[in-house]
Design a protein around this nucleic acid. Structure first.
Lengths: 336, 336
DNA sequence: CTGTTAGCGCGTTCAT
DNA sequence: ATGAACGCGCTAACAG
């Protein structure tokens, strides 16, 4: 049977309210009895009943996360980070893979302290119809919901990547990423690439943008194979995600293309895993730890009823590793 | 503010216990007042407080799932299936990505009705030290825990695949799968392949078993490339998972190898996605819907305090689609 | 049929 | 420093 504070009280020969205080480390209990009670609680492997606790204290120390169906390494990494940080703050993270509205309702019934929605932009769903007494935070696109949202400046990230390559003398730059169908995340990246290309008067050519069906390493591989096998091969590639980059690297390896000397690669997604690829990746994006920390902080704030500004857009960084290099000198180049 | 049954009662001009009954669709309330109360509850967008309900009724209609870190399509599909089935039974599914012991504790504090542990065999962790008042079900390896476990007969699945190929006249069969390091799942598959090879006196040769580092489509692709580029190319491949198979198919396509006429493929993992590959896959394994149904059923049983047999091993099926064919006649073959 | 009462496990006053 | 009493929102007995 489940052990309650009453059981502990009986065992310790004190009243159950003393046990309650001791467990909450109240200064109103002698160190001695406190220690004894903690001891007994441990022996009886007592676990507090959160339902009961929440009922009286209106605090559950729990964050509900609405988790999307699609699988992206960067999302998983982010979630793992958030989970760890929250755990360090003695918060519990619970996930639901239900549809957005249903999941939010679930967490409302359990009265979690706050809800984090990973908005994959997939659900064709009116986000303004969502009702919740529990404060909600979106991780998604700025302005797509009436709720506080944390976003990252994807356009700027691609700008950074592009400029980095331009500064290294690259002119033949290609972008590999997902078709922006129903996906604002991807649209921002692609459009930024196109704008930058025009801004720097990069001549148009075939395969400047290669759209992949999805975001698997697999797709990156296919795209890179197509791109690098042609005779109009670029000197630099900007990749739309970590997953794609893995495939791109693999393709380059198979084709015996020297990265970075013959081909530079900059990848979106600023996660530690980037440094551990065969060739440590030059990357752009908001550091995943910063996203995690920001999200966690806002979550804890709204969980405590503090107000937050409605939208936060995090600014990306460029981190130069080993996958980018000066553009190789080609004879047909006018800069020769 | 959160609306409670008292608020509804006030609004409807009845006592709060009448509201409680009406919401639970008790026959002790007039249809008329019931309808009125439901109406008001809807208007006030009432959501029951599960904490309070659980406290008194000791039932939460919630299943806690301990979710591992590794990502496998078949696991995701399984989880989605289970989630859907449970939802249809008005159960809620909550996930934790914490370490096994911590996650189990979490769910104990919330007093879910049952816990499902996806055991990826990764955690070096003594599973017998797990304490839980809440009934637990493992989806993992038979005998690896003292708790009820649902397992699938992986050995038998590979047997089925092997025999199917033998019956089609294949002699040059290769297996592509993950190194069984710290992974009993994979070990069962590989060892079965080896045993069968001996049983049927298949002559040993190079590349009979290709070990991949992990289970990405990616790994399947590389392995297949290696395998199919050599001059000792097999006439049939058994793939260890859906993910690997995707890569294998891709490799075959690139090498312009005709599947199934020049190369037969049988894949482990019996999921609907198998039928939607470029070439509908002949597959072995326990149908994912059957695994889901079994798990769900057991979960609901133990949630209601019913006893279950400690271990269930589900038996696999062979489903023949378009990826297998009679072995091509080769001149060196003695059967010519 | 409806309302009143008790109590689930816990945290928080307020007395002692 | 410790204990008794109350109530969080709800369900389940029991009264009316």
């Amino acid at each position: 049977m489940t052990v309650t504070i009453k059981d502990i009280a009986k065992q310790a020969g004190v009243s159950f309210s003393t046990v309650s205080k001791a467990l909450r480390n109240s200064p109103l209990v002698t160190e001695d009895t406190k220690k004894r009670i903690l001891q007994i609680a441990g022996e009886m492997s007592y676990l507090p009943n959160y339902a009961a606790r929440s009922l009286v204290s209106r605090k559950t120390y729990t964050i509900g996360v609405v988790w999307p169906s699609i699988e992206r390494v960067s999302h998983s990494v982010l979630l793992t980070n958030i989970n760890a940080t929250l755990e360090a703050q003695s918060y519990i993270t619970l996930l639901s893979i239900n549809q957005m509205g249903a999941a939010v309702n679930t967490f409302n019934r359990y009265i979690v302290d706050a809800i984090l929605v990973f908005d994959d932009q997939k659900a064709v769903f009116d986000r303004s119809t969502i009702e919740s007494n529990v404060p909600i935070l979106f991780y998604g696109i700025f302005g797509s919901t009436p709720y506080p949202t944390i976003d990252t400046n994807r356009k700027r990230a691609i700008d950074l990547a592009f400029e980095h390559l331009i500064n290294l003398g690259h002119q033949r730059i290609s972008y590999i990423g997902k078709l922006p169908t129903n996906d604002l995340f991807q649209e921002h990246k692609v459009s930024s690439f196109i704008v930058k290309s025009q801004e720097y008067n990069v001549p148009e050519r075939e395969h400047m943008v290669i759209s992949t069906d999805s975001m698997d390493p697999y797709d990156g591989y296919s795209a890179a194979k197509l791109l690098l096998s042609g005779n109009q091969s670029p000197t630099a590639i900007i990749s739309g995600s970590y997953d794609l980059t893995r495939g791109i690297l693999k393709a380059a390896k198979e084709l015996a293309i020297d990265v970075p000397h013959a081909l530079s690669i900059v990848s979106y997604d600023h996660i530690p895993q980037m440094a551990e690829l065969d060739i440590p990746m030059t990357a752009v994006g908001v550091p995943i730890s910063m996203i995690a920390d920001t999200i966690t902080q806002v979550l804890l704030d709204i969980a405590d009823g503090k107000g937050v500004q409605l939208n936060t857009v995090l600014e990306p960084e460029l981190i130069v590793r080993k996958s980018t290099h000066r553009a190789p000198v080609v004879h047909s180049s006018p800069s020769d």
